[in-house]
Amino acid sequence: MDVLEIDNISLSFGGVNALTDVSMSAAAGKITAVIGPNGAGKTSLFNVVSGFYKPNHGAVRMAGVDITAVRPHRRAFLGIARTFQNVALFRGMTVLDNIKLGAHTTLRSGPLAAGVFLGRTRREESALREQIEREVISLLELDHIRHKPVQELSYGLQKRVELARALVMRPKLLLLDEPVAGMNREEKGELSHFILEARERWQTTVLLIEHDMGMVMDLSDRVVVLNFGRNIAAGTSYEVKHNPEVISAYLGRAEAS
C-alpha cells in the first residue's frame, strides 16, 4: 500500500516551471529516495507535500485521501513530519524543548490548562518527557546534550536533533531533506543507522532527498529521479543506476565534473 501518492503535480512561480507532471509514490514502511541534480525540483516537491506550495494542478494523497487543499499545520496532524535542508531548529531553545515541539500534535492542553499546569497538562508533559527519554533521546544518543541550547551544537548534532524532533510524533510519513549534507563519513553512518532503526521501530514510511549516492543506494528500497522538474526514471537503486537517461542527466554529469 502507498502511504503517499503524488499524482501529476505541476507547479510554477510566475511563469517559471518548478515541477511539470511529476508523479510518484512512497510505499508503506519503505524508504523512497528522490534524487536529481541541483534545481531538479526536489525541495519544491517536498514543499508541495508539506503544503507550503499549492500545485497548479495535480493531487497529493495521503493513505488514499486527497490532501492537496489541506493547510500545512493540519498535515502534521495527519502524521507528516519533516526535516529541512538547512537545519531549521528553534535557535533560542534547548535540545529538549526543540524535541518537545515535535510532539505538538500529540498533546492536547489549551492555554488555560497549560497556565494552571495541574491535572492533564502535568500528566501530559511528564508522559511526553518520559517518552522522549525512552524513545528518541536514547535512540539518537542525545542524553549528554539535552539541556544545551541548540545553537551551541555542532552541525552534525543539530541535524540529529532535527531528526529527533521529527521522530517524536512517530510520524506515518517522514520527509528528510538532505539529512547527511555536510557530515563526515562517521556521522553519515550513524545517521543512516538511526533512520533504519526508526523505520524498524515504528514502520515509518520515509521519503528522502540526498546527494550522497552511497547512502541513497544503501538505504533506499526505491529511487525516483527528477531532472528539470520532470520524472525521468524510477525503480530500485540497481535499475536507476543502470538507466541510461539517468546516467546522462545526472550521474554522467557527476562523473564528468
Binding site: 531553545m93 518537545k100 510532539a103 492542553s109 492555554p111 497549560a114 499546569f117 508533559e125
Partner: peptide, 13 residues
C-alpha cells in the same frame, strides 16, 4: 507554567 507546556513552546517557536 505556560512556557513549560505545549502552548508556550508554540509561541516561542
Amino acid at each position: 507554567n505556560l512556557f513549560r507546556s505545549r502552548v508556550g513552546r508554540a509561541f516561542v517557536a
